[in-house]
């Protein structure tokens, strides 16, 4: 018998609409090249094979991004805010857990891209004094994100020191 510790998953899942955001993004990235290639392939018979084969290959690559991958990502991306720290789990092809204690948080922003906007979602960006990037929580409902940003800002302002 030997005991060991594991990181537990953060308690909250993202808003389920984020799956649609990911699918839409994939559609916007992969859609135009496939459509253009396919259209040209139909219009230019001599080059048909050379245009339709790449179109099919790109479509094949796009398929998981439109179907299974977003579902899987939805399971991976989780977040939690306690009184002492922000804890996130994220990752598309590798998993990344991040913990930032409340006392070290410098700024809290919310961010909304056009696609997120269309689905009524926000991204919460929590920066610390480190040069190694911010904690991002993608795909929160806009109200949840705004409340969270307000709460975090209030807590961090109440904390003395310059967070380094």
């Amino acid at each position: 018998m030997s005991g060991t510790v594991r990181l537990r998953p953060p308690s909250n899942a993202l808003d389920h609409r984020v799956v649609a955001v990911w699918r839409t993004t994939a559609g916007i990235v992969f859609g135009p090249p496939v459509l253009v290639l396919a259209l040209l392939g139909l219009l230019i018979p001599p080059a048909r094979v050379w245009l339709l084969v790449p179109a099919a290959v790109i479509a094949l690559v796009a398929l998981p991004y439109l179907t299974a991958l977003p579902r899987w990502w939805y399971g991976v991306h989780r977040w939690e805010v306690t009184d002492d720290a922000v804890y996130t789990r994220a990752g598309y092809f590798w998993q990344e857990w991040r913990v930032a204690p409340m006392s070290r948080i410098q700024t809290v922003d919310t961010l909304r891209g056009p696609i997120e906007q269309a689905f009524g979602l926000s991204t919460l960006v929590v920066t610390t004094a480190s040069a190694k990037g911010a904690l991002k929580i993608r795909g929160l409902e806009q109200e949840v994100a705004a409340d969270l940003a307000e709460r975090l800002t209030a807590i961090t302002q109440a904390t003395p020191g310059d967070a380094t």
């Binding site: 030997s2 510790v5 990181l7 002492d84 804890y87 857990w97």
Partner: peptide
Amino acid sequence: LVFAESAVPDLLTPFTTSITT
């Protein structure tokens, strides 16, 4: 994980669970 937890006390602890193998 045990090392990271002990290096900076209280930071990771709330987010870990003990499991027995």
